[in-house]
Structure formats: C-alpha cells, structure tokens
Nucleic acid binder design. Structure first.
Lengths: 135, 135
DNA sequence: CTTGACTCTGTAGTATAGTCCAGAGTGTAG
DNA sequence: CTACACTCTGGACTATACTACAGAGTCAAG
C-alpha cells in the first residue's frame, strides 16, 4: 500500500488524475518520487493530503490559501514566524465559523416558522428584503 | 436613503458596480425598480442582501447555492417543501462548521508546539505526510 | 511476447465568477 | 445651459481551477 500509482491515489482520495497532476504543478503536493520509467509514486500521506485539500476547498479556501495552510503544517522553518501565520489563520477560521452559525440560526428560524404555520404567506426573512412593491 | 443608485449600493455593500449587475442577471437580486430613465433604484434591503451574498461566497457557497439560500429566505411558496430544503442546508452548514473546527484544532497544535519549542526541527503535522525520503 | 489498461508531457478547452470597455444617454452642481 | 460624473446595454476579456486530448511510452496478466 505504500507505493501507489497516480490512478489509485486519485481514486482513493476522490479527485481526478488530472487534478492530482495539476495540484503537483501548483505546488500543493511537493514533487513526487518517480520510478525509472517516470511514473509517479505516492504513499498514504498523499491520500490524506488530497483529502485535506478537498475539504479546505469546500470551505471556500482558494488553492493559494490552501498552499499556505499546508506549508504551515509541514514546514520545518522558523517556528516563531509560523506561529503568527497560524494565529492569523485561526482567526480567519473563527470568523467563518461565526458566519456559518449565523446562517444556521437564520435557517432554523425558517424551519421553526414552517413547522408552526404550514401555509404561511409571510415567511420570516433571514436577513433582508422587506417586500417587493407590486408595481 | 431609501432610494439609491447602483454606485451607492455597490460602495455600501463592498462589491463592484459590475458585480451588482452581474448578480441581477444571475437572478440573485430580483429585478430592480427603474426610474423612467432606466437607472436602477435600490433600497437598504439590497445592501443587506449583497452583504449576505459576499459572506456566503467567503464560506465556499457557489452562486447557485446562494441563490437557493436566498430563495429559502424570501420565498412565499409552499412552506413544507421549503422546510426540507432548509433542513438540508442546515446539515451542510453543520458539516462545514465541523471541518473548520477540525482545521482550527490542527492549527492550535502548531501554535502550541511553536510556543513550547522555538527551534523545532519537527513541527507536528496537521494531518499528514510523515517525511520526504531524501533520495 | 502480446495486448489492453495505465501513465507521461504538453497544450488546449471549459465553467464559474467576475471585470472591463465602447458608445450612448442621464443628473445635477454651478 | 454646460460640464462632468454617473448610468445604461451588450459584448469581450480575465483569473482560477480544473478537464480533455494527442502522441508516445510503460506495466502486467495470460
């Protein structure tokens, strides 16, 4: 299991083969080892790393931001410098969490309202738009 | 304040004028009222709505998903149908929150490690990649 | 060995989400 | 009134993140 070809690593992490090569070109994967034939060789860690990338993308991080997150995690360099960047990322993440919680509360209100009033002609508005003037 | 031109609504909500028109074309804004001249007229609610869109985008929702979220919030239609869709969105959101909390914990570990060991040659790895064989 | 599936590089094409004109009309301060 | 900033439409252009070839080489089951 410790040496997979690109097809297997792609399938196991749920991304396309072309995407794996693309991420490598974009510096998200570090150069992979190669067989003499030129075939890339991956191990388990790449599967995990690709999973992390996929997840972070779903959370709205760009590839550039994900590259940063990965560097934070894997670099061996100056630790105090890393420290500040990690703190910054944490506060970005906390902001996202707060926004999501707010969206969730808004949706919960709709659900609650729907439950109590099944033919509402005036659903509660999340955040917004009083009315549309009919003319 | 209750009737703004596109430039003002754009500035106040922190998006570009072209973007406001683009969102309208994409059905995220509902057709705006017009002056006889053709100039669009917006009110406060559009500023809020644009803010909501901006925030949702930062959280990784696509415009198509955001359109859905907005419909959930503003529609007057069949409430029990809405109910299920709102529940689905809520669970998507909960998944995102959990992922973010996991990322946050991982970053906190880095920070803690950096604090205790300021010249680490072996930062703890979020999720991953044991080592890079030097050859 | 052969053969069919897999991989390589390099380049081109696609979808999404804007962003930027050109050319023409509008609003308003002075 | 004028002048200058603002707005309109329609169409072209851009960046990001893939995705799809083409043409050539590789792997491994039978």
């Amino acid at each position: 299991m410790s040496s997979m070809k690109i097809g297997e690593v792609a399938k196991r992490s749920g991304v396309g083969i072309e995407t794996v090569r693309y991420y490598e070109r974009q510096g998200l994967l570090l150069e992979s080892k190669r067989r003499p034939s030129g075939y890339r060789q991956f191990d388990e860690s790449t599967v995990e790393r690709l999973g992390y990338i996929r997840q972070a993308k779903e959370l709205g991080f760009t590839l550039a931001e994900i590259r940063e997150l990965l560097e934070l995690s894997f670099t061996q360099s100056n630790c105090s410098h890393i420290h500040q960047r990690a703190e910054d990322k944490i506060s970005d993440i906390e902001t996202k969490i707060r926004s999501l919680q707010q969206m969730k509360r808004a949706l919960r209100k709709i659900v609650a309202h729907c439950k109590s009033n099944n033919l509402s002609a005036d659903c509660p508005l999340v955040h917004t738009n009083k009315r549309r003037e009919p003319k």
